[in-house]
């Protein structure tokens, strides 16, 4: 970290955020994957991920957060919509109606038989759209130049 003459010293806040950030991200991933059987899902998982990034923006600044996560959030939103539409179109390839979902056991090497559902891919699209839209709004408002 560079040594500059800052006006205030945020060492407690920055150290706390460096720890808490990963806890919130892990919790949001847990919320995302637990949405099928327990409360949670793509929406609240995306909101928790974006609140972790907001905490990063609060403790540091826009430039540092952009160097930690070099992501254009408009592309994140677009890719999320693409994933949601792609799961809908994927069912058309099998002669099923649009957005017909499928689930069943899948054999994965090293992990064995796992019950997977294509609804998770749709939920992943929702997750990416929520993260992208929330971070776009907050970054656009936050950049006061």
């Amino acid at each position: 970290m560079r040594r500059t003459n800052r006006k205030t010293n945020d060492v407690i806040l920055q150290t706390t955020v460096q720890t808490v950030f990963f806890i919130i991200v892990i919790y949001s991933v847990h919320l995302f994957f637990s949405g099928h059987y327990t409360p949670g899902g793509g929406f609240i998982g995306g909101l928790m991920t974006s609140s972790a990034i907001v905490l990063l923006l609060l403790a540091f600044d826009v430039k540092t957060a952009a160097s930690i996560l070099p992501v254009n959030y408009l592309y994140v939103t677009a890719f999320g919509l693409l994933a949601a539409i792609g799961t809908g179109i994927g069912s058309l390839l099998y002669g099923m109606p649009f957005l017909k979902h499928w689930h069943g056991p899948v054999h994965i090497p090293f992990l064995g038989e796992i019950e997977l559902a294509t609804a998770t891919l749709f939920d992943f699209g929702v997750y990416l759209v929520v993260v992208g839209v929330t971070m776009t709004i907050i970054q656009t408002i936050g950049e006061t130049e």
Binding site: R6, T8, L13, V20, I24, Y27, M48, S51, V54, L55, L57, L58, A59, F60, D61, V62, K63, T64, I138, Q139, I141, G142, E143, T144, E145
Partner: peptide, 24 residues
Amino acid sequence: VLAFIGTVAFSKFLEKGEIIENDR
């Protein structure tokens, strides 16, 4: 988590006048 984020944002607004800085 939300209470922590809200309190930190309010405190930063009181101390620095802006919540999200461009370049600290």
